[in-house]
Each structure stands twice: as C-alpha cells, then as structure tokens.
Design a protein around this nucleic acid. Sequence first.
RNA 1: GCGGACGUGGUGGAACCGGUAGACACACGAGACUUAAAAUCUCGAGUUCGUAAGAGCGUGCGGGUUCGAGUCCCGCCGUCCGCACCA
Length: 886
Amino acid sequence: MLTNIPHHDIKTSPMASERYNAPAREKHWQKAWEAGDIFRAENDAQKPKCYVLEMFPYPSGRIHMGHVRNYAMGDVFARYKRAKGFNVLHPMGWDAFGMPAENAAIERKTHPAKWTYANIETMKGQLKSMGLSLDWSREIATCSPEYYAHQQQIFLDLYAKGLAYRKSSKVNWDPVDNTVLANEQVIDGKGWRSGADVETRELTQWFFKITQYSDELLSALSTLDKWPEKVRLMQANWIGRSEGMQVRWKLESKGAPKGFKDLEIYTTRPDTLYGAAFLAISPDHPLAKARAEKDKDLAAFCEECRRLGTSVADLETAEKRGYDTGLRAHHPLDKEWMIPIWVANFVLMDYGTGAIFGCPSGDQRDLDFAHKYDITFQPVILPAGADPATFAIKDKAVDGDGTMINSYDLDGLTPKAAFEKVATRLETEMLGKEPVGERRVNYRLRDWGISRQRYWGCPIPVVHCKTCGVVPVPGKDLPVKLPEDATFDKPGNPLDRHPTWKHVDCPSCGTKAVRETDTMDTFVDSSWYYARFTSPDAKTPIDAKAAAYWLPVDQYIGGIEHAILHLLYSRFFYRAMSDAGHGSSNLREPFGALFTQGMVTHETYKSSGGAWLLPTEIRFDGEGDTRRATEIATGKPATIGSIEKMSKSKKNLVDPDDIIAHWGADCARWFMLSDSPPERDVIWTEAGVQGAGRYIQRVWRLVDDIGGRVPGKIDTRPAQFGPDALDLRRSAHKALDAVGRNIEGLRFNVAVAQLYELTNALQAATSKSSDGMDWAMREAAEILVQMIGPMMPHLAEECWARLGYNTLLANAPWPAADPALLVDDEIVIAVQVNGKRRDELKIARAASQSEVEAAALRLESVVRALEGRPVRKVIVVPQRIVNVVV
RNA sequence: GCGGACGUGGUGGAACCGGUAGACACACGAGACUUAAAAUCUCGAGUUCGUAAGAGCGUGCGGGUUCGAGUCCCGCCGUCCGCACCA
C-alpha cells in the first residue's frame, strides 16, 4: 500500500486567513485521495484485517440523509481503524434488482437496466462527494450478470443439496406488486414495500430450506455478543422455538373416513391433557377434507373459512368459529373418555400438525371457543393462593403456574412435574406400532419462499420439461440472462409472456421445454454480497481464501428495519452456501458485530390548504414560541407539524446535495455525528447545521492561527512546561485517550463533545503564556486535527497541510496518548456529610486515606454541617469521595 | 394480550463498575467589537427562597437496599418498538 508519499499537489487555500471554503477544498482533497488510491484494500496484507461494511443502498435515484448518516458512521470507523494500523476493507455496491426499476419502466417507458445504471451513476457521484474512504475497485451491482451468474450457481448447488425446492403452498399475494411475499415481508397484513393488503393464494413456489437451520440460527444468537440485544431477541421470537409433544388420539371407528385411524395433535402443555374439552383441526386438515366429502355443511364451512381468509388483515380480526364434525376420539390417558372433534378457523395447517386439543381453562382462545359452542370443561390448574372450594373459570383463562387439580394421578403435582409424568407415560404406551406421544420441538419459522413473478430479478436457473420434470440449467450455460427486449406495458410477469425467452430445449432430453419464469426475491441478492466483496473478481462465487481472511464482517452498520429480514436471511444463506461447498465450513456467522443506527427526522410543514410542503418552500420568522412559518410562494401562513422520519410523502426532506454544495460534506457528516446517540433518531435542524458550520470555521481559524505562530514542529521538546502548558497537554492526551475509545465503541456523539472540549481548551490556551506553550499548542493542534480526521476528513487534511505537512493525514497513524499525562497530580474530591455534598477538597493524588479524612474534617463547611454532633464513621473512597457519617 | 426498550434543565443529550447530576452542543439572556448588521469574542443560567453569603428541592411516580442511588431491587404511570390465532 502507498503510505505517506509526498503529495505534490498539496497546498493550503490561497488566502489562509480567509474563511475555509469547504465545497471547493473538499473536491481538492477527494482528488488527492483518489490519485493516491489510498483506500484500496489488499487481500494478502500482513496487517490485521478489519472489514467495515454499511448496508448497501438500493439505487433509487438519489441518496438521502439516512444514507449520509449510515455512511458517515461507517466511514469514521473505517478511517479510524486504518489510522490504527488495520488493513481495512470498506467496499460499496448496489442492491440493484427490485420493483421500483420495473415501475419506472412502466411509468417512463425506460428499461429497468437503463434506469438502474443511470441511478447508480448519480448516486456514486453523490457518495464520492461525501468523501468516504471506500474501495471502489470492489464495486458490485447485483443486477449485473457477472454477479447473478454466481448467484445462480449457488442456487443450483443448494438445489443439489435439497436446500432449494419447489412446493405448492398458500402464499402471501401482493395485489399491487403482483407478486408473492415471504412471511417476513408481510407487516401488519400489508406488503412491506407496496403497503397493499396481502391476500392468500395457492401457488407452486420455490423455497429455501431455512427451517433446516432453525435450531442453529437460534442457538448461535447467543454467540453474537456484539449485536444489539433487541435484534437478537426479535430473531429469537421470529424463529419461535417451542418444546412440546405430538400426541396420537385414536379415532372412534364409527363415522371415521376410510384410512383415518388416529389424529395427531401438537401441544406444549401435555400436563393439561385432563382439561381437554375438544379437539380442533384446521379446515385444510386431510381429515376435514375427507369428512367434508360426506358432509355438505362441513364442506361449505371449510370453503367459507378459506374465502374469508383472502386478506391477512381480515384473518387476524376474524371471530373464532367452528363446526362439530360429529367424529369422536379416545382420550389418550383415559380410553373410555370420548372427546368431540371440531373444525376451527383459528387452527393453522402449517404449524405443528394442523390439529390441537382445546383446554378452555388454560387458553383464552379455547375458552372463548368453548363458551361460544357450550362445550363443558374442568379447570386443571389451581393458581397459587386460590381457594380450591370456590375456584372457577369465568371469562379469563388462567395460564400461570399452580397445582394440578381434577387430573387424577397428576393431582397435586406442579405443571412441570405433570408434563414429565405424562410425557414419560405417553412415550412408552403404544398405539398400533407407534408410541402414543413423542416429545417434539416446533418452530414458528417457515421456509423462505423466494419466487417472485417479476422481471427485474435474478432468474431461477431451471427448465421445466414434460418428461424430465425440473432440470437444472447446466453450469456451462450460466448465467441465464434476462432478455433485454421484455415489455412492461401490461400487468403480470414480463418473462412469462415473452415470446421466445422461455422456450428452450430440455438440457437433459432435448425435447421442447420451458424456462422457469420466476425470479428470486431480492433479499437473496443481499444475502451474500458481503462475501462477494472479499473477492469481487473471483471465477467462483467466492474465493475461499479471501473469504477466510476477511470474514466475518468486523463492523456492520445499517437500519433496524432489517433486524429480521436481511439479517436472518444472510445468517442462513451464509451457512447454506458454506454447506454447499462455497467458502470455509467453520465460518457460520457473516456479521461479527452489528450496529443499527437511528433514523433521520425533520419537522413537517403544511400549507394553508393542507398540502405537505418542502422545508425549502418555507420562510421562518421569530424564535421559540413566536416562531412562525410562511409559504414563500403564496405568502400565506403555513403550519409547523410534528417531527417525523424524512419521507417523500410528507416532503420533510433535506437534499444531501444541497447541504454538501452549500456547507460541505464535512458539515453534514459532523452534524450527523453530534448530539444524538447513533442508535437513536436524529432531528435534522437548520440551527444544527449552522452550529456544525460554525465549528468548522472555528477549527480552521484556530489551526490557522497556531500554524502561523508555530509553522513547523519544534524539534526538541521543552524540558519544562509551565502550568498552563501542562494543563493543555493533559487536556489533549486525555481527549486522545477518550475519543479513541469512544470511536471504537461507536459513541460518536460523546467523541464529538470531547473534541469540542479540547477545542475550547486549545482556544483558551492561545491567549495564555506559559513555558513550552508553543510546543504544547502545536502538539494539541496536531492531536485535535488527527482526531477530527475520521469525522471531517477534508477539513482535517486542510489543517494538516496548514500545520506544515506535505503528506496526507489520511495516511498518518493514530497518535498514542502519553499515560503519564492521563493522571493529575492534584485531584478534586467531593466531601459529603450524611450523603449530602457539602464541599470539595483539592488534594494531592498521592494523599493517604487518613490525610484525606483529616483534610475533609478540617473543612469549615463540614464543621458547620456537623453542628457539633460526633462523627460516627468516615468513608473514604480513594480519589472519588469522602462521606462523613454522624 | 405477549415480549422488549426508554423516561435526566427550555431542547438534543453526558455521567466508567453505586461515589461532586446536568459534560458538550443548541436555543436564550447580558456585555465587548461595529455607524449598523452579520461574523467573532467574554460572561450568565436546573429550580425555589434570599440583596447576598447560603439553604431547601431536584434524574416520570411510590416504596426498598446502602454511609451514599439517575445507576441496583419491588410496585405503579407514561412513551416508543417488535410479535400476535404458533396450540
């Protein structure tokens, strides 16, 4: 790597005493970095590696403030790590497949590829204007055949391993995007992208077998100690592990459809089995379907359940309904006891076995159902403290702990003990050739449906042949490229109606066959891009050696909205890829550390007519309570609304380009890092930007002043420093120590505050005279500039040059704090009387406990507070506090 | 309904492991410079009482542990987020 080569084009602004012209100087420094190619990562460096990654953007057209915040944070970390001597990989790419490109094709009659690549061009320019330390040589666009060829290869390898398969199932259908959605992509019954009410349809679809990894994905969460607890919890809940039993109930032969001898249910509470009042099966259960053939009313009921459930939102509010099939089953613990079998609309076919036993006393749903259909039942758990003589269930089921009652041999046991007793008994009893009950772990997680009926996605590389069935496209024929001449003028899948593309000869038997016209969910694209970045030119999907060197990602930064979708898919895909032979098998987690940053928010404005207005369409008068907004175009008053996430629909947007053109990228970056903790939302305000802009000028003036007074390094360090010079040195080294730790911990707002503090101290020092002050000021100025480097890299380069360097600051190593300057000789400790602070005490750091105690008791304010009462005890916490107890 | 996070001045927020609450910034007020404004610089400020010195009260509310609680424990209230017929 090129380090610290003298750079010929480095010079300070022509008139150094003028205001710092950020937009002009920023372009200059960006060119200097680019000319030196200094952010290129090497795959075989001897230095320790650090892979810093921000979630790559969708090329929607322009970057927004959320991107600025995300990439500013990642850049601080990347630049800091580079300065700390790491071989840093900090790449950027484009999540380039997806619906908006296709919508643009429909609306503007431009091809999705053309639209996408034009957007990439624009956004790349915008990102470059931010001054990010990115290695652009590794740029990836997921829509390029070079990328998706490898994805198709991975798909085929997963298919060969049985990790990709096809099945017919109920799917979530988005009627606006005209495509299916995975469960994770349905939020509150609406499509995650379109916001449309999702419907249920039966379709044959491609799936990835994520459920094969349920247990691993869950248990490995505990190893992700550098992930937010919140995200781990959300994933754990999503995977939804439950321990229970599968229990067979012998059907009463009378009336049972042919071939049905028993009914298998799933329960997590076998302890409450004596509380069973009914069995309930899904309308889609085979037994329901078989019975419906002979029972017209039942058939109608099942049909109604299905029809009612077209929208997921409806399903969730639908009332509990059931139909008594007339069938009966023998209770597994008491063969003489007959339990009725119902079909119920709230039983899901694809969870457990699609059949349950209803225990009304312990489950609210079952209780509601029993009340509605007058099914009698007995409570089986007596809560602690309840009176057995009067205890009864009314409208509320009781699902807490307690003592078993009305349960024969289980009476008096705890539910836990009863669970074990029942489980052991049912495991050993046989029904036919199989045990009555088996312990079973169930997961809420379903397989990941990846089929999308869209054009702008990675084609699924298989062919459907009448004789051979599903035939993978041979490796030599990859990639299966998207046809460029698709049409977008009508709804539906352009691939499916393309006149020639889908018609091919079967790779196996040579007869006429058709291509799969589904494309992959774009979340597949983003499930492995981080791995491709480690070897973007490899002939195979990933180069095992490069992946082993770089992965896992050392710091991943992105939005919380991907807590489940992208992050769970990536954790699965990385494992699946590895198990299918790509990369090393012992690397299971792609992201070692995860940080989820908050959103960027802004005030909203409405015109007198009620239309949303852009901040740039408003003029403000007054301050505080008297602040008023006026619509510039009409001169009419406008309303100032609540603070919301920046969005196109509410028009509360600030364009990063405008900010960068006017204030500079450093200003935008600094604002994003100041004040708000990075995981929380930040409110973008004009006052805040101005504050950041003021600080930039202040730093420049200060460094300019010092650079003028002490133009070069003073070779010999003074042997003696006066008190003020020593104070300044202490401030600088303390800040250095603290800022490093805070950047490391991503506490940027705290680091920023410490930089302000050092700036204040340095500024104050310029008007003081003290032995060695010139040397101390230069030292402090250099330290300040170096610490500003990761956050405001352009300003820092400018200052670095002003301090006389003709090398790039971006290549300079991070300075080391002098431990001797981190501790003070004299410290101030607080003195309390009875826990109440009364005074403070300035004393030598080395003072003994008894010296501190004596000094504290001598304080006038302490004597006064004692009011002559005898001192009972004195607590001295070294270097912190003294508490006098009376 | 279940699970989780959070609650600190006018505002954003700081406070390591229980040890001086309010760092730093924004907004505000006063002053300096200026013909004036902008810019910049200096000073002030949690709140109540007091001319002041000082004292009382203060981290959503109520209790507790402790020499000492923003921090730990118990119970409420509020805000935000995630999940939700998952048997």
